[in-house]
Nucleic acid binder design. Structure first.
Length: 470
RNA sequence: AAUCCGGUAGACGAAUGGUUAAGUCGCCAAGCUCUCAACUUGGAGAAUGCGGGUUCAACCCCCGUCCGGAUUCCCA
């Protein structure tokens, strides 16, 4: 059987982190089995669907590398086809017109609730053939009255539903437009979707869809209902948990491969492996290993995974994103070190590209004050001799390369009889403005001779002023 | 209210009905060290929501219960 999966978002907002995980699983499954992954935009609700939302979905998918083999297919382009099925079902009695008004439906629902019953349509127009004046009818699917529908779900197992619990759902509104559960069925059948991989909020819709698939004479796909992703606190993921839009993660400096790696481990596992390349995920992904229960989104683990990916990714892969981060900060990188050098020095010292950019501004921009805490601790009178000696030694260096730089610092420590800490930290604060950076030789190489010497002068003045003030 | 799904340390998650309930993040500590990271090592943290039952043996099977979620929209 040819594997064909789909991702079917409705364009009514941002591309949500939970939706992405669903898309990822469907994409992985298709790739794993050499099948097709189809993107379908479910925009039958014209009130709420927007082009901006379509754009953000497309951008997000592209950023994450979840490429579709077909689509995007828009359901609004398929209205003729839905109409065709509707007419056929009406003609064959698989569907019927219901002339209930919204008010009548509301009253019915309230009465049922008041009696402690499950609210649902009572089928009052099921066998009425006469039109009712003044009411535009909706079209309802004639659901079987008895028997069970069994969903064979790859994640949840066998789930049984009694038809008696289901009512005749509306498949076309009174304005003639089709509704979600119906369009899904027609599309999944027409697109020959073999595996429906979606959020488990759709599990309850599945028996209705299976009944309609049967009415269509279409094969029943394999279902896999994925557990939800919750916020850090275990509540439904929402804006108040921070970023839910995947593009926010791009802007925050996460790597697409890292986000995907983090998401694949939410609801799926392969032994005790935590880090996966894209190819490994594709090779190992398996519906049978999907977890049944919801999981909470944990930013600190995402950070760790992102750092792990930053440490192993080729520099070229990071450079573009890092350049974007500098741009966001308004840092001009034309006069500083090559980004590949910055990346080599900082890839294991930053959790995101945004962190990396923020921590390395000193390589490209001058500053006029030292971090107060670091200065107080390290730029004190006792450091004056060391700073002056280092300044002199560095000024005389023929080659501004790491080996020479570290030798110079070491020789100052030796000559003054000081530990490296007594020499290194003042120098570090002098040239970076703060108390932490890569090893001094690397840091000095990053900053370059001109900036390094200027900043050492600035630090020496600072210390002298401080000594004078005492 | 009904139906359906779910519940293993703070989080992610392993565990054909069979050792002392893996591993990872986070947290704490030590080591390395010019700082910060990275890395290495060690540590704390769970009687598997709760109560029954079946069994020689239950995270796993059964019943009940509690909690959370989904659905029951002319939303998707």
């Amino acid at each position: 059987m040819t594997v064909r999966t789909r991702f079917a978002p409705s364009p009514t907002g941002v591309l949500h982190i939970g939706s992405v995980r669903t898309a990822l699983f469907a994409w992985l499954f298709a790739r794993r089995h050499g099948g097709a992954f189809i993107l379908r935009i479910e925009n039958t609700d014209r009130e709420r669907s927007t082009q901006a939302s379509v754009d953000t979905i497309l951008d997000g998918m592209a950023w994450l590398g979840l490429d579709a083999d077909e689509g995007p297919v828009f359901q609004t382009q398929r209205f003729d086809r839905y109409r065709e099925v509707l007419d056929e079902w009406l003609a064959t009695g698989k569907a019927y017109k219901c002339y209930c008004t919204k008010e009548e439906l509301d009253a019915l629902r309230e009465a049922q609730l008041a009696r402690g019953e499950k609210p649902r349509y009572d089928g009052r127009y099921r066998d009425v053939t006469e039109p009712r004046d003044g009411v535009d009818p909706v079209i309802r699917f004639r659901n079987p009255l008895d028997g069970d529908v069994v969903v064979h779900d790859a994640v949840k197992g066998e789930v049984h539903f009694a038809n008696a619990e289901l009512d005749d759902l509306i498949i076309a509104r009174s304005d003639g437009t089709p509704t979600y559960n119906f369009t899904v069925v027609v599309d999944d059948a027409d697109m020959a979707i073999s595996h429906v991989i979606r959020g488990d909020d759709h599990l309850n819709n599945t028996p209705r869809q299976i009944n309609m698939l049967a009415a269509l004479g279409a094969p029943i796909p394999q279902y896999a209902h994925l557990p939800m992703i919750l916020g850090e606190d275990g509540a439904k993921l929402s804006k108040r948990h921070g970023a839910v839009n995947v593009l926010d993660y791009r802007d925050a400096g996460y790597l697409p491969g890292a986000l995907v790696n983090y998401l694949v481990r939410l609801g799926w596992s392969h032994g005790d492996q935590e880090l996966f390349t894209r190819d490994e995920m594709i090779a190992l992904f398996d519906l049978a290993a999907i977890n049944r229960s919801a999981s909470a989104f944990n930013p600190s683990k995402l950070d760790w995974i992102n750092q792990q990916h930053m440490m192993s990714a080729p520099a070229a892969e990071l450079a573009g994103g890092l350049a974007g981060q500098y741009q966001r900060l308004g840092v001009d990188t034309t006069t500083g070190p090559d980004l590949a050098v910055v990346i080599a020095a900082y890839r294991e010292r930053a959790t995101t590209l945004a962190d990396m950019a923020a921590a390395t501004r000193y390589c490209f921009e001058d500053f006029d004050t030292f971090d107060a805490g670091a200065a107080k601790k390290h730029l004190r009178p006792a450091a004056l001799d060391a700073l002056i000696a280092v300044r002199a030694k560095l000024a005389g260096l023929a080659d501004w390369v790491e080996a020479e730089l570290s030798a110079a610092i070491q020789s100052v420590a030796d000559e003054l009889g000081l530990g490296m800490g007594k020499v290194g930290q003042p120098v570090r604060v002098a040239i970076t403005g703060a108390g932490s950076s890569p090893s001094l030789d690397v840091t000095l190489a990053l900053v370059g001779p001109h900036r390094a010497l200027t900043r050492l002068d600035m630090a020496i003045e600072f210390v002298q002023a401080r000594a004078a003030a005492q």
